[in-house]
């Protein structure tokens, strides 16, 4: 008899409960696109504190965590709400006031650090960076090519997040995660992190994954737990299911105080549980 892998499906609140105060989180997606935003909101509902966010291009997620006072630190390459929304205001205020510590990266140096962790090596050379003030700021070291090309290269130390959390288009019961369209940096995040959590639009039968295994970005054995949350990337997009909910983003940006109760109550996952 062939035993199947264990069932990894949990509720959104159970998924968030796996993350303890002070954890470092690599969050998938980019700006307002296919981010695990329902999980970020649930961490805030549960009052999580002292988190670190690792992401090449955070926006809504980091702004929300700063606004809730849940973040202590970030490693990021570019932070904005994007589109016509400009800077992420609560993030900006948190850095300017010293509420959070910023380790400023280029997007590719985050990727290099994640690659070092994923490859199991103590550092990863990264192209470019010549003349930038970022290496000195972060204390990165360079070395000359030991094979004699006389080219110097910057060496980025490993970035091994406690958790990688991605929003997938679909999952299997045992945790295979299917991503459609660009994977952004989700793949390398899931290879670098100690544990992988997945939020997904929908649950599909194993047969569907067997028919198109090349669409599976993360195999089930690498995944700790999964929550199925339709519209969980709201107010961002999840292609091809839905686009950015611009009125919702405008309403979020227009709010001037730190009280998130209205915004959290308007989220799809909150409306579903209120109706249940």
């Amino acid at each position: 008899m062939v035993l199947s892998a264990k069932d990894k499906i949990v509720s959104l609140s159970e998924l968030a409960a796996l993350i303890t105060d002070g954890s470092s989180l690599a969050l998938g997606g980019s700006f307002l696109h296919r981010g695990p935003f329902a999980l970020v909101r649930e961490l805030i509902r549960q009052g999580r504190r002292g988190l670190e966010l690792i992401k090449q291009s955070p926006g809504y997620d980091i702004d929300l965590l700063c606004r809730a006072g849940a973040l202590r630190r970030t490693r990021a390459g570019i932070v904005a709400m994007e589109g016509n929304f400009g800077l992420a205001r609560w993030y900006r205020q948190a850095v300017e006031s010293g509420q959070i510590e910023l380790e400023e990266h280029a997007c590719a140096t985050i990727t290099a650090g994640l690659r070092a962790a994923a490859f199991g090596i103590p550092f990863q050379p990264c192209g470019g960076l010549q003349g930038s003030a970022l290496p000195a700021l972060n204390g990165w070291k360079s070395c000359e090519d030991p094979y004699g090309s006389r080219r110097d290269v910057w060496l980025i130390p490993p970035i091994a997040p406690d958790f990688a959390i991605i929003h997938a288009n679909a999952v299997s019961r045992s945790g295979d995660a299917r991503v459609l369209g660009t994977a952004h940096w989700d793949r390398i995040m899931t290879r670098a992190a100690k544990k992988v959590l997945v939020v997904a639009e929908e649950l599909l039968p194993d047969e569907s994954f067997r028919e198109r295994p090349e669409l599976t970005l993360v195999p089930h054995f690498m995944v700790e737990a999964v929550a199925v949350v339709p519209r969980g990337a709201w107010p961002g997009s999840c292609w091809p299911h839905y686009e950015i909910d611009y009125p919702a983003v405008e309403a979020y940006v227009a709010e001037t105080d730190s009280d998130l109760s209205g915004h959290l109550a308007a989220a799809p996952e909150a409306r579903v549980s209120a109706n249940a």
Binding site: A76, V79, E96
Partner: peptide, 20 residues
């Protein structure tokens, strides 16, 4: 940088892409 008047978004790809 350590006492910002305005914290800007950050360079994203710039530091790696501009020289290469």
């Amino acid at each position: 940088w350590h006492a910002p008047k305005v914290r800007l978004p950050g360079g994203g790809g710039g530091a790696v892409m501009l020289p290469t």
